[in-house]
Every structure is written in C-alpha cells, then in structure tokens.
Write a protein that binds this DNA or RNA. Structure first.
Lengths: 199, 199
DNA sequence: ACGAGTGATGTCGTAAGCTGACATCAGCCC
DNA sequence: GGGCTGATGTCAGCTTACGACATCACTCGT
C-alpha cells in the first residue's frame, strides 16, 4: 500500500472546484480546500503557487495542443488560418457533456471574480506569446507573428465567448471560423468610401 | 493651515513609485509606502483597493479620453479608424520628456512583475469593454463593436509596444497608424491562393 | 461664539494568503 | 539492515487586506 493517497494535485483541484461552486470562491480558504483533499495548507502551496492557480492547470495542456497544431499546419496556409484551425482543433476536446459542464462552471467562476479573470488574462497573454514563438518557428517574420498572434487571440476569445454563451454549446470550431470571417470582413472594409482618404 | 498635508493620494502614488524603483516592487511593503508618504498603512487602503492599484490611477483618465475621442469622431468613419484615431490622440499626452520617463519606468515595472501585468491586462480588458460601449453608442452593432474593440486593442497594444521599445520614443500616433495598416494587410491577405478554399 | 456634525486620518485586532526551516517516515537501493 | 529520497506535516512569521471604533481640525447653523 502506498504511503499516501495518490494524485494529491488532482484531489486538490477537484476539492477546490467543488468548494468554489458550493460556497463561492472568496468564502473558500486554502485551508478548506486542503482539508477536503485530506492534505494541509502547506501542501497546497507546494502544488500551486497561489490560490487562483488551482483553476488553471489546463492552460499548459491547451498551449501544448495549440502549438502542436500550429507546427503541423500546412506550410502554405496564411498565419491567421493556421491559428484559427489550431484553436478550432484544440477546442474539439471540450464538446462532450462532462467537459462542457466543467468548462461552463469554470467560465462562470472566472467571469464573476476579478481575481480569476486577471489570472485568465495573463494565461492568455502567455498563450499569445507562445503562439508568436510557434509562428516564427514556421518562418513567419517576428512583427507579423506578433500581430497575427494578437488577432488569433481575438478570434479565439470571441469564438469561445459566443460558443460558451450559446444555449447549448456545440460546434466550437464553427464559432471560431465565423469569428475569423467576421474579423476579415471588418478589417478589410475601408469605408463605404464616401470621400477619398487624403494622399 | 490645513489639518493635514494635502493630496494624500498623490503622495502615496509618488512614494510608491519611488520605492518600487529604489528597492523593487516586492521588497516594498504597503507600510513602507505609507511611511514615506507620512501616512499609515490603513490610510493607504482607503485610497487604493490593493497594493497594485497604486500604479493604475491613470487608467481611468485614459479611458475617459478615449471615450471622448470615440464620441467625437466623424460619423462616417469606419470603426477601426475611429479607434486608431482615438488611441493616437489619447497618446499625444505622453510625448514630453517627463511623461516619457514616467511611462517607461512604469512600463518596465509592469513587464517585470506578473502581479502588475495581471492588473494591467484587466485594466485593458475594461478599456476594451468601455470601447464596445462607446461604439454601440455610435450605432455600431454589438457583435461588430465587440470585434472592433478587440482589434482596436491589438492595434493599441502593438503601437504602444513598438513606441515604448524604440530607442527614443516619439510619434506615438504614427506607431498606432502603422499597426493598423499592418493589421489590415495581414487580415486582408487571404492566401496567395494556390488552391481554392472548399465551398 | 459655540455646539453639532463631517470627514480624513489613526489605532487596534484579526483573518487569510503565502513562505522558510525543519521534522517525519514509508519505500527503495545497495 | 542502514542510509537516502521525496512527499507530506508542523511551526513560526510576514504581508495583505479589512472591519470597528477613536480622534480631532474644520465648518456650518443659529
């Protein structure tokens, strides 16, 4: 018999999520979480740098998936299409009932607490930075890669938001593609050009 | 004679900035800041919700300036141009020596500390949300406004970054306009279209 | 001019987040 | 068997953040 129950990290994550839903994020202390997972507060902080981080273990996997998709994309695909395809593909993992429930619960938590939103935003910024790396590795020039990554992130955010707030989320990939199409339409549309631009 | 030295908030902001630069953000406690401003820790927390917030008093002004510019823009200007112009105009306030020094010092601090970066990101997200409001007030449809605001923010970020990292920052507006042009070029470029897209 | 009220600040106490230093001890390796 | 390893526990302490209450110069109404 093992000396300790296995998967301390997983137990902490589950305990945290359960408690956050049961009694709210703020009213749940790290001590509560640790107790529910049969561990001590100190151990919690060995696994997670801070209280918020317990909700973000997935971001590393997401980043890896997206980078893999970027690396594997056809070489002649324009950067924006590469990114949209990568996001769409990475999103297919969240389409079963279980996952959707989790993602929505988590989404609700994050949008309700500025704390968590901050962490989410910096994770996405990290993802953007990683994306720049992935694109430059494909030979995209650095400034272009930076811009493309920003636009890709906008597409991802909007696609996700529309997907998450639709009554019964499905077809994540479709939402992402639609967001990209909208982006192209908006960016491409120089004015109904009533008068010529100077120069 | 007044009962207290005037401008407690301003004194706290200056003390904080000075100490952060002198001895680093993390090694400076709220107590240190308050002491340097001849106030108590408790008073600090009456002016600022938390330690980070002391660096972000400017974000409200920035938001107001940008919203004003959006509201005042010619009615037939496309959303993206409205935003780029608003950012460019709002940025003209930071072009004198004093301001540049402050902005750069602050930028260095923020990029070096994840804590502060998180706060910065959520402030920008708030600015994005406000921008959506400003656009819809002009009659832009909500989904378009959301997308335009995201793209506008990308332009602002990139423009600012390029401006801030240039050896001697000048012509903020030019950087913003250039970022927008780059965005249009990148988004407009559907592939060198070797093969037709399906459908 | 005087007493009540106001508002910025101070004092005190405390919960929660987070960290360093050291202790424990089952299982593994030699 | 004995020592090493690594996950966990224990303990002490600092910092952040906030509620409750005290203080007291200034103001305003009468």
């Amino acid at each position: 018999m093992a000396r300790w129950e296995p998967d301390a990290r997983g137990r902490l994550e589950k305990a945290a999520m359960d408690l956050f839903i049961e009694q709210g994020y703020e009213r749940t202390t790290v001590g509560d979480i640790a107790a529910r997972a049969d561990l001590t507060e100190r151990t919690f902080f060995r696994y997670f740098a801070d209280k918020r981080e317990v909700l973000f273990s997935g971001s590393k996997d997401l980043e890896k998936m997206i980078l893999d998709h970027i690396a594997a994309a056809p070489r002649d695909l324009p950067a924006l299409d590469v990114l949209a395809a990568a996001y769409a593909a990475a999103g297919t993992g969240i389409e079963d009932r279980r996952a959707i429930e989790y993602v929505r619960a988590r989404y609700a938590l994050v949008t309700r607490h500025a704390d968590l939103q901050e962490r989410e935003l910096i994770k996405l910024a990290g993802l953007t930075a990683a994306t720049v790396g992935g694109l430059t590795a494909r030979g995209v020039a650095a400034p272009t890669a930076a811009l493309a990554a920003e636009l890709g992130m906008a597409v991802f955010k909007l696609g996700f938001e529309r997907w998450a707030t639709s009554r019964t989320p499905r077809d994540f990939a479709g939402h992402v593609r639609a967001a990209l199409a909208d982006l192209r339409a908006l960016a491409a549309a120089p004015p109904p050009s009533r008068r010529p631009r100077r120069a």
